[in-house]
């Protein structure tokens, strides 16, 4: 079971400011371990943000994103008290969804 994300979503005027920390190894598939063997690729490929049934953000990621990524974006249309849900999917079929209330 992947570790939870740390999500903050705060109203800034009419814009929702979202900051997310994700726990993920983000292995590129090109790194070698101490024994000289390639560590298989394992990274997040897709991040989606959903608010009130609408996808407000969708990002396609690749192996160049760092370990334990920090991700921030802003969107219009949200309000205080709304639920914001973030989901990531990775190359190994792993996924994690966490939800916060916008404040």
């Amino acid at each position: 079971m992947p570790d939870p994300m740390r999500i903050r979503a705060v109203m800034m005027g009419d814009v929702v400011d979202v900051k997310i920390l994700m726990s993920h190894v983000m292995e590129t598939g090109q790194r070698k371990n101490a024994d000289g063997d390639l560590v298989p690729a394992h990274y997040i490929t897709e991040v989606t943000a959903t608010c009130k049934g609408k996808t407000v953000m969708k990002a396609g990621w690749g192996p160049s994103v760092s370990k334990n990524p920090y991700f921030s974006f802003r969107f219009k249309g949200g309000a205080k008290g709304d639920k914001l849900s973030i989901t990531w999917k990775d190359t190994a079929g792993g996924t994690r969804t966490d939800e916060v209330t916008i404040n």
Partner: peptide, 18 residues
């Protein structure tokens, strides 16, 4: 592309360390 998408500003600090 939805209207909302246009307002998305990405401040991705998830660049490679190097």
């Amino acid at each position: 592309m939805s209207v909302q998408d246009r307002y998305i500003s990405l401040v991705a600090a998830c660049t490679l360390l190097g």
